[in-house]
Design a protein around this nucleic acid. Structure first.
Lengths: 239, 239
DNA sequence: ATCAAAATTAAGGTAATTGTAAGGCCGGAG
DNA sequence: CTCCGGCCTTACAATTACCTTAATTTTGAT
């Protein structure tokens, strides 16, 4: 079982043995960052602090019910949230899904099914629909072409390859081609953890990217700065 | 039940009564474009021809099994695919999910649950794209067009870009298009802190905005002053 | 363990954007 | 007609967001 990426997960359940079971299952599946909360209060705090990539809720909690908690967090965030509950009545499933949960799994459950469902949802959310980039793999910027999946940049003078960060940044910019992308948004898509002092780190990476894709990095024609707002990429895509 | 958009759906099942049932359920839920196939061959052809936004498979089909069919189509496309099957054994669910299905629903099923699960998946997959193009608005002011997300203003004589403040002000005015926006309200949406002495600062910014979007900034036709009250933007928006 | 490549940090420099101020214009009230 | 208040206009000053280079740390491969 290979997960798409090592997502940080929050498990909310009041039974320690369930939490431990889930941690074991998830860690075996490749999720090394599993944090847990035993009640609503803890869950709210951890959610705000840790910004997990996904949340698994039990419905019955000591200081409130999982439905309300989920609804509350859903208003703040669009991250995957799913219920894991012993309550398997139809109304409960409908309630959970109706409130915006991505899945509702009933106990007892198959560990592998949980992992498959969770991974599927994470993949959907964090791997933006690929149909675009699968077919349109090549970015044309004047005399420079970027083959995205391979990370190869072809210029009149030679070939370069993109580093991981450059690739991540260009990807985000490309996905929003022609639109302004805020510095914050770029950082969040290229760095997992919060990047302290990114004001400058990002700039340096933008500079490096420009050195690879621009004819004259100091006079950018494609990767443009929008002062006070962010950056934007202009160019054409072809098959 | 409101669906996020009227997705075109393909239903693959060999029992006509199930197909009819699904069509009824889905149409009631707001999906008006439901097409169907009774076997693998038909499904392949329709999939290629119609390019549906989502597919619902039965596992047992007369000329092959749904698993192989799904796997085959999945290789071509990333659209949401889910199984609806009477086979509720663990191995089948794991198989379906493992092959990349977005969900595996067992018969008998609750119509509402099917719709909720399907809508959730469609939302996850298509919403990012929709919001992008929805917000990709263009403001038309006579011969001048403003592309908001890119911050580009196109005039007969050339192209200009908006600064952050201009962008913020125009945004507020645009949101209240045709209505008077007070100076105070404009300031609060464009400045974080209270702007001391903004009476003039705002005017200067309005002037600068007019220089970019008006043909004759001194004789404004779109960004109008309403003496003693504020400003108002008139113009048409198009997709 | 070692080395090369990549990522981050730091600091000084620069210019576009923004803020300020001062004088001018114009319509409405008296 | 004249005055006043609200708005316009322009030029200039200040700020801050961004650029650039280089040194340092981290990462990853061998």
């Amino acid at each position: 079982m290979k997960t798409i990426f090592d997502a940080k997960l929050l498990v909310v359940d009041d039974e320690p043995e369930i939490i431990n079971l889930l941690k074991t299952i998830l860690q075996q599946a490749g999720f090394s960052q599993v944090i847990s909360a035993e009640n609503c209060r803890q869950a709210r705090a951890l959610f705000a602090l840790e910004k997990p990539h996904g949340v698994i809720f039990d419905v019955t909690l000591p200081d409130g019910d999982g439905f309300s908690l989920m609804q509350e967090l859903r208003q703040q965030s669009n991250v995957p949230m799913l219920f894991l509950s012993a309550r398997d009545e139809d109304e409960n499933r409908l309630m959970g899904l109706g409130l915006g949960a991505d899945d509702y799994i009933t106990k007892p459950f198959l560990p592998r099914e949980l992992v498959l469902r969770l991974s599927g949802i994470l993949r959907r959310v964090y791997q933006p629909l690929l149909t675009q980039s699968q077919t349109d793999d090549t970015l044309v910027l004047g005399t420079v072409t970027v083959h995205f999946n391979s990370g190869i940049v072809k210029t009149p003078t030679g070939e370069k390859t993109l580093t991981a960060k450059e690739h991540a940044l260009l990807k985000k910019l490309w996905e929003n081609q022609g639109h302004i992308v805020t510095a914050d948004s770029l950082c969040r898509s290229a760095w997992d953890d919060d990047l302290y002092g990114y004001e400058n780190t990002l700039m340096v990476h933008i500079r490096r990217l420009r050195e690879k894709i621009e004819v004259d990095p100091s006079q950018p024609r494609y990767l443009l700065t929008v002062r006070g707002m962010g950056y934007k990429l202009i160019g054409e895509t072809r098959a």
